[in-house]
Design a protein around this nucleic acid. Structure first.
Length: 376
DNA sequence: TAGCCTTTGAAGCAC
DNA sequence: GTGCTTCAAAGGCTA
């Protein structure tokens, strides 16, 4: 795990997160690719064509897998290279020691277009302003106010690994100020709250505060219905009542997941693609094409997510979901199944290493995606 | 209908 | 400390 220990501050963040994913030689290309994040649709389409050209390299996924080691070792490789940047960041966005109560004191939100105050001199540009809204608004499972003023009692360091106390959830009411009417009045503007969270206590945090990380143990994301503006069918709810199961607390989304969540719809609209695998490939390339500052927004948001998650569920561990049967019912999936999946994964990796059969998606990646992009 | 595909990043675990 | 593995989201596809 990328560690951050800038003077005993928040270790949830990660200096390593502020990494450049491109080699210097690719900077020019990177800049070129960045164009689509700041221009109108026409430019974007043009950039997508460029992407497709780039994509003509043999099996990007395989290439990427081959580079995986390099990628993972990147922070170390480039730490020295990025030292200047890091120092800059140390004095800014990621300097936690200077912001007691971080991240809840990160106000005004440095990422808000109109924000004039930033904890960092590294002013963050705003992507996708064409959306007519804050680019991250849709990502925020909690309204900005939840990240707003830092309660005076908020510890500056909530590291679990360092053994530093994590606030108990009952103290969170200050952070998660609910509408006067309570949970039931939470509006869709809250972002990607699972609808189920608003329906009853099944997905409710003991504090009564809903959180997107809580999902019923039905496997698939229930909030998908909510995202589509639909409400759960009564019989579904009745079924749930019949089978009260321990809700699964999902992992907080990382920076890339947040980015995907925001950009997916846009890519789908632009590319007329619906295959998530293909969409994710595009998003992955776009992610790398983002500037460091643009990525920083999402890293920052992800860190807030993690902190919020940690405060809401102090005892939760990612391991819980490992043993919970992946995305299924908590604790009911047998470990044998888990082992099967692990074995499958190993076999798959072995196949790829030994030049085994290529998946249909590998073919899709090399051919279908560029075609789709060129059609724009 | 469960699982795969595909992406990046966080976290857990084994060595 | 390093490397591997799983899981987060998403939705079409496949066995």
């Amino acid at each position: 795990m990328p560690q951050l220990s800038s003077g005993g501050g928040d270790d949830m963040g990660a200096n390593d997160e502020m990494i450049a994913f491109k080699d210097e030689g690719e900077q020019e290309e990177k800049i070129q690719e960045n164009a689509f994040t700041e221009r109108d649709l026409a430019d974007l389409k043009s950039s997508l064509v460029n992407e497709s050209e780039i994509n003509q390299s043999p099996n990007p996924a395989a290439v990427r897998r081959g580079q995986q080691g390099e990628h993972r070792g990147f922070p170390e490789k480039h730490r020295e290279h990025l030292d200047g940047v890091s120092k800059h960041q140390d004095g800014g966005m990621y300097k936690t020691s200077g912001y007691p109560g971080y991240p809840f004191l990160m106000l005004p939100d440095p990422y808000l277009p109109n924000s004039s105050v930033s904890p960092s001199s590294n002013k963050v540009s705003v992507v996708q302003q064409s959306h007519g809204m804050h680019p991250l608004t849709s990502l925020l499972p909690y309204s900005n106010e939840h990240f707003s003023p830092s309660p005076p009692h908020l510890p500056t360091d909530m590291s679990q690994k360092t053994g530093i106390h994590r606030h108990q959830s009952q103290d969170l009411s200050g952070y998660y100020s609910l509408p006067p009417g309570g949970v039931g009045q939470i509006t869709p503007s809250m972002g990607w709250f699972p609808h189920s969270l608003m329906m009853g206590p099944s997905g409710m945090h003991p504090t009564g505060i809903p959180h997107p990380a809580i999902v019923p143990p039905t496997g698939k994301q229930e909030h998908d219905q909510y995202d589509r503006g639909m409400y759960m069918k009564p019989h579904v709810e009745a079924k749930r009542e019949k089978e009260p199961k321990k809700p699964v607390i999902k992992k907080p989304l990382n920076a890339f997941m947040l980015y995907m969540k925001e950009m997916r719809a846009k890519v789908i609209a632009e590319c007329t693609l619906k295959e998530s695998a293909a969409i994710n490939q595009i998003l992955g390339r776009r992610w790398h094409a983002l500037t460091r500052e643009e990525q920083a927004k999402y890293y920052e948001l992800a860190r807030k997510e993690r902190q919020l998650h940690m405060q809401l569920y102090p005892t939760w561990s990612a391991r819980d979901n490992y043993e919970a049967g992946l995305s299924g019912v908590a604790g009911e999936k047998s470990k044998a199944d888990w082992g099967k999946k692990k074995r499958r994964k190993r076999e798959k990796l072995q196949d790829s290493n030994t030049g085994g059969k290529r998946s249909a998606f590998a073919t899709f990646k090399e051919e279908a995606v560029p075609v789709q992009l060129l059609q724009i």
